[in-house]
Every structure is written in structure tokens, then in C-alpha cells.
Deep mutational scan, measured.
Amino acid sequence: AITFRFEGQEKAKKFYEKLMRQNLEATIHIHGDEVHVTVH
């Protein structure tokens, strides 16, 4: 698994949606202002 870190939720959401379109499995974790997107 690879984890990407984002400042702010907007960028993270766009990235997450892009992964979903590519049929990749990903989970999102929100830590205050920092958002972690883990790709499995």
C-alpha cells in the first residue's frame, strides 16, 4: 500500500475520485487539515 498526504480535503477528494475511475482500491483518512489517501 502507498499513502499520499494532502493538505486540505479538496485535493484529496479529487485524487480519490481519480483512483475510483481507474478501479483502484483506496481508503481515505482525515486527520484535521491533513488527509491521507492509501492506495492498496
Results as ranks from 00 to 15, higher is better:
H40F: 14
T27C: 05
H40T: 10
K18Q: 11
I2N: 03
K14V: 10
D33L: 11
F15W: 04
R5L: 12
F4Y: 14
K13G: 05
Y16I: 11
L19N: 00
I30A: 08
V37W: 01
T27S: 10
R5F: 15
K18V: 08
I30W: 12
N23G: 15
I28E: 00
A12T: 01
M20Y: 03
G8I: 11
K11D: 14
H36E: 03
F4S: 08
Y16L: 12
A26W: 07
F4H: 09
D33G: 07
E17G: 03
I28K: 00
K18N: 10
L24D: 01
I28D: 00
F4G: 09
F15N: 00
T38Q: 06
R21S: 12
V39K: 03
Y16V: 10
H29L: 09
R21V: 07
H40S: 09
E10M: 05
E25W: 09
G8F: 10
T3Y: 09
F4R: 10
V39P: 04
G8Q: 11
T3R: 07
V35T: 04
A1R: 12
K18G: 07
K13T: 08
E7P: 07
F6P: 04
I30R: 07
M20I: 13
A1F: 14
N23V: 04
A26S: 03
E25S: 12
K14D: 11
H40D: 04
E7I: 13
F15I: 02
L24K: 06
A26Y: 08
G8D: 15
K13I: 14
G8A: 11
E7V: 12
I30L: 11
F6A: 02
K18L: 13
V35G: 01
E17I: 07
F15Q: 01
T27V: 06
A1K: 13
K18S: 12
L19S: 01
H29W: 10
V39E: 02
E7S: 12
A26G: 03
F15D: 01
L24Y: 10
H40L: 13
F15H: 01
H36S: 06
K11E: 15
I28H: 00
E25V: 13
T38K: 08
I2L: 08
Q22A: 12
H31D: 10
I2V: 11
K11C: 15
H29T: 14
E34F: 13
L19D: 00
R21C: 05
I30M: 08
R5V: 15
A1T: 14
H36L: 12
K13A: 09
F15V: 02
E10L: 06
A1N: 13
T27E: 10
I2F: 07
A12H: 01
E34L: 10
R5M: 11
R5P: 11
K13W: 14
H31I: 14
F4W: 07
N23A: 05
I28M: 09
A12L: 03
Q22G: 06
E10H: 06
H29E: 13
Q9L: 15
I30T: 06
F15E: 01
H29M: 09
G32H: 04
T27H: 08
T3Q: 04
V39Y: 07
K14M: 11
A12G: 04
V35I: 11
K11A: 15
F4D: 09
Y16R: 02
L19Y: 02
V35M: 03
H36V: 10
F6V: 02
F4T: 11
E34I: 13
Q9K: 09
K18M: 14
M20D: 02
K14E: 14
K18Y: 15
V37Y: 01
V37H: 00
K18D: 12
G32K: 08
G32F: 07
A26I: 12
L24F: 12
D33H: 09
L24Q: 04
T27D: 09
K18F: 15
E10K: 05
V39S: 02
Q9S: 12
A12D: 01
I2R: 06
K11Q: 15
Y16F: 10
K11N: 10
N23H: 10
F6I: 04
F6N: 02
E34H: 14
V37E: 00
K14S: 09
Q22F: 12
R5A: 11
F15C: 07
V39L: 12
V39A: 03
E7M: 11
E10G: 04
I2A: 03
K13S: 07
Q9P: 13
R21Y: 06
R21W: 05
A1D: 15
H36C: 12
E34V: 13
K14G: 04
K14A: 13
A12N: 01
R21N: 09
V35Y: 12
V35R: 01
H31T: 08
K11L: 13
K11H: 10
K11F: 07
V37P: 00
L19K: 01
I28T: 01
F15P: 00
H36Q: 04
R5K: 13
N23W: 08
A26C: 05
F15L: 03
V39H: 03
D33R: 10
I30V: 09
V37M: 02
M20T: 07
V35K: 00
Y16A: 05
K13D: 05
L19V: 08
M20R: 11
T38G: 02
N23T: 03
A12M: 03
Q9M: 15
I30D: 05
N23S: 06
E34W: 11
I2M: 08
I2Y: 05
V35L: 03
H36W: 15
D33V: 10
N23K: 08
Q22C: 15
E25H: 15
T3S: 05
A26E: 00
I30H: 08
E10W: 05
Y16M: 10
H36R: 06
D33T: 13
I2S: 03
R21E: 11
Q22E: 08
A1V: 13
H29P: 00
G8N: 15
G32T: 03
N23D: 06
F4I: 15
L24M: 10
I30S: 05
K14W: 09
I28Q: 01
T38P: 00
M20N: 03
E17V: 04
Q9Y: 15
L24V: 13
R5S: 11
V35W: 15
H36M: 09
T27F: 09
I2G: 03
V39F: 12
T3D: 07
Y16S: 02
H40W: 14
L19C: 14
V37R: 00
R5N: 05
T3I: 14
H36T: 12
T27A: 05
V37L: 03
T38V: 14
V37K: 00
Y16W: 10
H31Y: 13
E17Y: 04
K13L: 15
E10I: 06
F15G: 00
Y16H: 03
G32N: 06
R5I: 15
I28V: 05
E34T: 09
A1E: 14
T38H: 14
K14L: 12
A26T: 03
G8S: 15
T27G: 03
D33K: 10
V37G: 00
E25Y: 13
H40G: 09
F6T: 02
V37S: 00
Q22D: 06
V37F: 02
I28S: 01
H29I: 12
Q22R: 09
D33P: 05
G8M: 09
D33I: 09
T38S: 04
V39Q: 03
H29S: 13
H40R: 11
I28R: 00
R5E: 11
E17N: 07
H31P: 00
E34Y: 13
D33Q: 09
K11S: 14
M20G: 03
T27I: 06
G32A: 08
K13R: 13
E25I: 14
G8P: 01
T3P: 02
F6M: 02
Y16T: 03
E34Q: 08
F4N: 05
E7G: 06
G8T: 15
K13Y: 14
R5Q: 11
A12E: 01
E7L: 13
H29K: 08
T38Y: 07
R21D: 07
E10Y: 05
E7T: 11
A26F: 12
F6D: 04
K14I: 12
Q22S: 10
T38E: 05
K13F: 14
V39T: 03
F6H: 01
E25R: 12
E17P: 00
L24R: 06
E25G: 07
R21K: 13
E10V: 06
I30C: 09
Q22N: 10
E34N: 04
N23M: 06
T38W: 06
H36A: 03
F4A: 09
H40N: 08
K14T: 08
E17S: 03
E7C: 15
G32Q: 07
